[in-house]
């Protein structure tokens, strides 16, 4: 069974009447993951002084795209990933394009393997995500080194990768709940 049909009891022959309000509700629920990335990117660019704010921006975007790309691709189309990536790029000051490219690549991987990933357990999915999160951070580090024409310390990149991998379980718990409730277009 594909994970996006997670509420089979609602796919009955008797569908609710399609009104404008319902269409709006469905669109809002489907856009919830993208809005989550956009709002967290803007919120985390404010000067709260929280350690690792910039890394958290990247981590939240990566986890969100990965989860929704394999579990409900209808809520996270490629164009939405691109637009979310652009917003994250605008509200961060890292090397331009790296977050966007990382998001698109991780989207491509998750979307391509979505059937396999849905069958895998949580730990296996987390491990695969960890590899790609580490690769994305390494790519970002390599580009910064290329831009600075110097070998910079990889510690910030490692911290970013560790933070991204570390927040994945808690975000997954939130998303699993959201997929059933507030981000489920079938419940509109």
């Amino acid at each position: 069974m594909v994970a996006e049909n997670s509420t089979p009891h609602l796919h009955s022959a008797v569908e609710p009447k399609q009104t404008f309000r319902r269409a709006l509700d469905m669109a809002a629920r489907a856009a919830m993951p993208s809005l989550f990335i956009v709002f967290s990117a803007i919120l985390l660019s404010a000067p709260f002084g929280i350690p690792g704010q910039a890394q958290l921006q990247f981590g939240i975007a990566m986890c969100t795209v990965w989860f929704w790309a394999y579990s409900r691709p209808r809520s996270m189309p490629a164009l939405a990933v691109f637009l979310c990536g652009l917003v994250v790029e605008i509200f961060s000051f890292g090397p331009p394009g790296t977050v966007l490219l990382s998001l698109l690549v991780i989207y491509g991987v998750a979307h391509h393997w979505r059937y396999g990933l849905s069958r895998l357990g949580f730990i296996a999915g987390w491990l695969i995500f960890s590899v790609f999160a580490a690769l994305a951070s390494f790519f970002q580090w390599a580009l910064v080194c290329l831009h600075a024409v110097a070998l910079l310390s990889p510690a910030p990149g490692l911290f970013q990768a560790a933070l991204t991998i570390g927040i994945y379980p808690s975000l997954t718990a939130l998303f699993v709940w959201g997929r059933r409730t507030f981000a489920n277009p079938d419940q509109a």
Binding site: E89, P95, G97, L100, L101, Y107, G108, H111, L143, L146
Partner: peptide, 18 residues
């Protein structure tokens, strides 16, 4: 074709940034 085109655009942004 959408995803490859978007990835190409992202690569373009990376090059623009460099």
């Amino acid at each position: 074709a959408v995803l490859p085109i978007l990835i190409l655009l992202a690569v373009g942004l990376v090059l623009l940034g460099l």
